[in-house]
Amino acid sequence: MSDMEIKVPTMAEYMAKGEAPDVLFWVGCAGSYDDRYKKVTKAFVKILNAAKIKFAVLGTEETCTGDPARRAGNEFLFQMQAMANIQVLDGYQVKKIVTACPHCFNTLKNEYPDLGGNYDVIHHSTFLQELIDSGQVVIADGKPFKGKKITFHDSCYLGRANDVYQAPRSVIESLDAELVEMKRCKTNGLCCGAGGAQMFKEPEEGNKDINVERTEDVLETGSKIVASGCPFCLTMLSDGIKNKNKENEIEVLDIAELIAKNQQL
């Protein structure tokens, strides 16, 4: 499998051939620039290649969805971004979008329709679950997570914001791992601290950082792996685990990385 050439086609390349992919992979800014999350992007692309999904990315034509601007109150900037993106997406006649960022997911799915951009948008955890269910990804038996405790951190923009709770859990369970819930999970999940544009500024004065509070929930489960489906959560949890000096014991992994490891991609 590792000898296989990995392809990352762009929408422009498809269009030049007069073809259209089945799905657009919206990479997001973190997936494009953040060193840690680039690994998730690559893991997901490898899975898409292995499953022979006809996908494409926008490449350098992708820009911020505008979500952080909107959450911070700059509606002008959000709408400028959104309208520019809608022009690009509609220009390529995009119908279906998958993204590994719950913030992009929420904005593209729920907020672009108000500005005329209507797409079928799914989060990569749901997409992966569908690939497993349809047999396009066949989980290799006994591969590295069998019987291991994995806890899943619900990102607010996937869970409470969009009621996606089961898909990432189904993916974890498909790996024969033992899914252990934190005391605050699903609708009661605790934020990692980065939502609402908090990722882009220092927290207000308090007595604790939110990611440290959340990391304590993780430690309580006794899991050596904490899975998430969001670039910001991944950063916040990794930092929280470093804060507790547990970075050599506990791994923070994205759902796509779990599958990629199982598939030895």
Partner: peptide
């Protein structure tokens, strides 16, 4: 992008894969 990276670098991640 919310971070100050060159827009032309956005797709650089694909180089490692290719």
């Amino acid at each position: 992008s919310p971070w100050k990276f060159a827009p032309t670098d956005r797709f650089n991640w694909s180089e490692d894969l290719k």
